[in-house]
């Protein structure tokens, strides 16, 4: 019984996913690209970087990278804490 309920829920969710994927804006023409056009046109001048993705990761959105480094550090601390009690 529980399995059928789960299967029905999965089917409904899959239907929504597939429908929204089909009804999306067409592949290859993004909807909003003003911000990205600004990045592509001005990244070389403002950060003097050829790689626009790196300029976004480390310069325009540096706080994202800081949070990401924090998450990685937290994961390392968590793993070492989990295996600490094995060390006699």
């Amino acid at each position: 019984m529980k399995k059928y309920v789960a299967l029905a829920a999965l089917l409904v969710v899959s239907g929504f996913f597939l429908l929204s994927a089909i009804e999306m804006h067409s592949f290859g023409s993004p909807a909003e690209e003003d911000m990205d056009r600004y990045f592509i046109e001005n990244a070389q001048e403002e950060t003097s970087t050829n790689n626009v993705v790196t300029s976004i990761v480390f310069d325009y959105r540096g706080f994202d990278t800081l949070g990401e480094a924090t998450v990685l550090f937290t994961a390392v601390v968590g793993v070492s804490l989990l295996f600490r009690r094995l060390r006699k």
Binding site: D36, A43, V53, I56, D64, V71
Partner: peptide
């Protein structure tokens, strides 16, 4: 567009 690629990099590491 470069912004989704940068955010995906963050998402992969997390």
């Amino acid at each position: 567009l470069p912004t989704p690629q940068a955010l995906t990099l963050t998402s992969i590491v997390i």
